[in-house]
Design a protein around this nucleic acid. Structure first.
Length: 897
RNA sequence: GGGCGGUUAGCUCAGCGGUAGAGCGUCUCGUUUACACCGAGAGGGCCGGCGGUUCGAAUCCGUCACCGCCCACCA
């Protein structure tokens, strides 16, 4: 006997354990079935489950469970990402609380500490994914820094380096002064900053009293200026081009140059050029062959090394002593000092408030500093070309398709990817340097030593590159590194390329694009044929969720409170194409009601002795009721499958919800009650067997979304052995004999009951007050129908009897029109004639209005001539029907007197 | 500055050429062989504005307005 309510907290983990122990999630490389593969986007090993995970993993698990039921050999590849910066920072904080530090432990000590942390606490997210019901193939779990995956990383790096697609370069890089590492363009985000625009007078050399004024938001970088640029056509400055300016503070003579980069509309039209600290200035510097002194170090503190020798005292303009005091000062403090000094010297023309976008490091949150360093780069431009082609040709498609534009826009203008990071935690770059700086890129230290011996003609001591690779470098290999590449494993042959990649739009560039590039380059094929892009999870008001705002929904809390199924169904119901998911506690609570509804419906079935009957076939159904619910069920199967086929999780949820609640519970079970009450009745057996069949199909339809409650019911009813629903076959639409007639009949009964209920509710008739339902002008089929459904109508429409009305309509009755029949409800004493007249008049007006609209349409000669025949015919028919109704309503009104 | 998405019932959204829909919320009623995490009924909409195409536009095209996001830009 089922409990009064479903208790997910106790039941769900047991069901999950049973599935996992039984190997229900396991891929089977030996099977003959067609594979279906999803590579999980590996969560950070430091992570814990948040709503974003709940969304993405629910979607994936729905697809996975659905395809598994369809008989595919499903591989859902699990794993975690080492997440370089995030993990290193986390362990560093841990060390800090223990009174030690990364530096104190040294590189090796620190790394073993991180590994130890990973062994002890790195499994949190995997445990939490189990609570979400995610049916991942756990024994295949991988970690991006596993031996195998690390081999893959080295193999890719070395191969690309030998192909010239990975190389070292000295150029400006986005530098994070807080973490003191290079970062890629993607890790930079613009933030609006309210700052100032300082207008600074640079004296023109050999022209005493003449100044050229530049405007800047970063006066501290002027220490590294090596030119002032004006636009070639700017008449204001034409005479000054070719002359020199005296750089205030340092006294350096810098040329005044003409360059298109200068925009006469902005600032003063003259712009200071600091090639070593600004990306635009860098290109100007290259064009004009300017010196590029760095004046900020890796911590973004002033460093004078490259300009020390050039400092010159100039009366009233430059003072080497002042500049020397700036050494090792932070960039923002130096800015203040420099502004004060310029003011003192009378060289500060004016200061304006100025709001502008400043690039920040997304991780550390500090403004990035363009810095001249040597880094490793990947030539993404070359790798991007086949990836673009693959999407253009449809080999890989995006759902929703609009994201292809985003992908193309970025890929077609892709910049070299800086892949080295000045961190310790990550894949160490497999490059070794000889004493003279010669670089040996090899898979192992031994191979590098071998290469060095060949190069130098003798054994030579090498030093390995200190840097590690961008975390996304190893993520880019995930679709094949997890399958054993570079070994030629049978998994690799079978499960690459995968089918679907599910992820958020925020990492299309970070991850999707790079997997495409690497997959095509190393496997010769795309890593997946479909990329399903979902939205972001937001709170009920559409705000981004964040811990600081306090509006974050904790999925584990929701699971504890409402059960996993409620959370999952909510997510599915809200996941429309290209839309963010606005998730609130109330919504989850609401869908928990759906899970309960299903549970109670099943309980009701159980209480009535409804049990699976494997011999039952839909084609054997003979009754209108059973034929009708089976036809509805077949439609629901069809709708659910079509929705999943198109990644319409919202439509899938809506279809199964509607069928369960409206068709099965509200009408079928209610109509079934008379038959169930009398187990000897002729219909009882067929009704029960149909109910059992319907429930069985329904559980299968619902399983991908709400796996726990469906498996619990499946097991309890004994549809199969415990834990078998997960591998049960997905239902197919089926034929039902006489479906059309059954639908016509049930449709009529439902409309009759609804009509009577509406009248009674509007007349405030108490439910205890039963009334006869008299059918005036009813054709014979209708009278027969009414007789067949006497019990159900009696129950659901509170009728004492249902019969044709022969003769006069008594007075003091309520009336309603249903097709050609007028329903008469003698409710003597309860009917207020005036009120009834108002009600009927309102109805009449509504129907007459509809009729009028159609009549006007049909009077339009163009419509009749040009609209398709069926549409015209349909309208004619409708008009006739509506006019009939109006006439009957008018007759009813007349009878009221 | 370039691009993408959105604007439909109080809220969240579906519908994307032929009778304006759902869920929630609101109001009224309710101890009926499961379910109050429930049942029955009702109210609620110039489908953002303006133009166009069409026999017919929420739906297609153009344009404007507002909202959100992405990319670029430290004068």
């Amino acid at each position: 006997m089922l409990n009064k309510t479903y208790a997910p907290a106790e039941t769900d983990p047991k069901l999950y354990d049973a599935w996992e122990r039984a190997g229900a999630f396991a891929a089977d490389p030996d099977s003959n079935a067609k594979p279906f593969t999803i590579m999980v986007p590996p969560p950070n090993v430091t992570g814990s489950l948040h709503v974003g995970h709940a969304l993405t993993f629910t979607i994936q698990d729905i697809l996975i469970r659905w395809q598994r039921m369809r008989g595919r050999d499903v591989l859902w590849q699990p794993g975690t990402d080492h997440a370089g910066i995030a993990t290193q920072l986390m362990v560093e904080r841990l060390l800090q609380s223990e009174g030690t530090s990364r530096e104190a432990l040294g590189r090796d000590g620190f790394l073993s500490r991180v590994w130890k942390w990973k062994e002890e606490s790195g499994g949190t997210i995997s445990r939490q994914l189990r609570r979400l019901g995610a049916s991942l193939d756990w024994p295949r779990e991988r970690f991006t820094m596993d031996d195998g995956l690390s081999t893959a990383v080295r193999e890719v790096f070395v191969t690309l380096a030998k192909e010239g697609l990975v190389y070292r370069d000295r150029r400006l890089v986005n530098w994070d002064p807080k973490f003191q590492s290079a970062i890629s363009d993607l890790e930079v985000e613009s933030r609006e900053v309210r700052g100032h625009l300082w207008h600074i007078r640079y004296p023109v050399a050999d022209m005493p009293g003449t100044f050229i004024t530049v405007a800047t938001t970063r006066p501290e970088t002027m220490l590294g200026d090596t030119a002032v640029a004006v636009h070639p056509t700017d008449a204001r400055y034409a005479d000054l081009v070719g002359k020199h300016a005296i750089l205030p503070l340092t006294g350096r003579r810098v040329p005044i140059i003409a360059d298109d980069y200068s925009d006469p509309e902005r600032g003063t039209g003259a712009v200071k050029i600091t090639p070593a600290h600004d990306f635009n200035d860098f290109t100007v510097g290259q064009r004009h062959n300017l010196p590029m002194p760095s004046i900020l170090d890796r911590a973004a503190q002033v460093t004078l090394g490259e300009i020390e020798g050039e400092l010159a005292a100039v009366e009233g303009v430059a003072d080497p002593a002042f500049v020397r005091r700036l050494a090792r000062m932070g960039r923002f403090e130096a800015r203040k000092e420099i502004v004060a000094e310029l003011e003192r010297l009378g060289l500060l023309e004016k200061t304006e408030p100025h709001t502008h976008q400043v690039p920040h490091a997304d991780r550390s949150g500090v403004p990035i500093e363009p810095l001249m360093t040597v880094q490793w780069y990947c030539n993404a431009g070359v790798l991007a070309k086949p990836a673009i082609k693959a999407v253009e040709s449809g080999r890989t498609r995006f759902v929703p398709q609009q994201w292809e534009n985003t992908f193309f826009a970025w890929m077609r203008d892709i910049q070299p990817w800086c892949i080295s990071r000045q961190l310790w935690w990550g894949h160490r770059i497999p490059a070794w340097y000889g004493p003279d700086g010669t670089v040996f890129v090899e898979r192992t230290a031994e191979e590098a030593a071998e290469a060095a011996r060949a190069h130098y003609g003798q054994p030579t001591t090498l030093t390995q590159d200190d840097d590690v690779l961008d975390t996304w470098f190893s993520s880019a290999l995930w679709p094949f590194s997890t399958l054993g590449w570079p070994e030629k494993t049978r998994e690799l042959a079978r499960y690459y390329p995968g089918d679907v990649l599910v992820t958020g739009f925020d990492i299309i560039f970070f991850w999707v694009a790079r997997m495409m590039m690497m997959g095509l380059h190393f496997m010769g094929d795309v890593p997946f044929s479909t990329v399903y892009i979902h939205g972001l999870v937001r709170d009920e008001r559409g705000q981004k969720m964040s811990k600081t705002k306090g509006n974050a929904v904790d999925p584990l809390e929701m699971i504890a409170e409402y059960g996993t199924d409620a959370l999952r169904f909510t997510v599915a119901a809200l996941t429309g194409p290209g839309r963010d998911v606005k998730l609130g506690k109330r919504t989850i609570e609401n869908y928990r009601g759906f899970v309960t509804k299903l549970w109670n419906a099943a309980r009701f079935c159980e209480m009535n002795g409804i049990a699976p009957d494997p011999t039952f076939k839909a084609v054997d159904a003979t009754l209108p009721l059973t034929r009708w619910i089976l036809a509805e069920l077949s439609d629901a199967v069809q709708e659910a499958s079509a929705a999943l086929e198109q990644y319409r999780f919202d439509e899938y949820a809506a279809a199964v919800y509607r069928f369960t609640w409206n068709s099965f519970c509200d009408w079928f079970l209610e109509f079934a009650k008379p038959a169930l009450a009398d187990s000897q009745s002729a219909d009882a057996s067929e009704v029960k067997r149909t109910a059992a069949y319907t429930l069985g199909v329904l559980l299968r339809l619902l399983h991908p979304a709400i796996p726990f409650v469906t498996e619990a019911l499946w097991d309890d009813f004994g549809y199969g052995p415990p834990g078998s629903l997960i591998r049960e076959h997905w239902p197919e639409p089926f034929d039902v004999p006489g479906a059309r007639a059954a639908r016509d009949e049930l449709d009529w009964v439902v409309r009759l009951i609804t009509e009577v209920r509406t009248v009674r509710a509007e007349m405030n008739v108490p439910p205890s007050q039963r009334s006869p339902i008299l059918l005036k002008d009813a054709p014979r089929e209708v009278i027969e129908r009414a007789a067949r459904w006497r019990d159900a109508i009696g129950r659901l429409a509170r009728a004492s009897e249902v019969r044709p009305l022969n003769g006069e309509v008594p007075s003091g009755v309520a009336q309603a029109v249903l097709d050609e029949t007028t329903i008469v409800l003698p409710l003597s004493g309860l009917i207020d004639i005036a009120q009834e007249r108002t009600r009927l008049e309102r109805e009449r007006a509504k129907v007459a209005g509809d009729a009028e609209k159609i009549a006007r349409k049909l009077e339009n000669a163009d419509f009749v001539a040009r609209a398709p025949e069926e549409v015209v015919a349909e309208n004619r028919e409708r008009l006739a029907g509506l006019r009939g109704e109006v006439a009957r309503m008018e007759a009813a009104l007349a009878r009221l007197g």
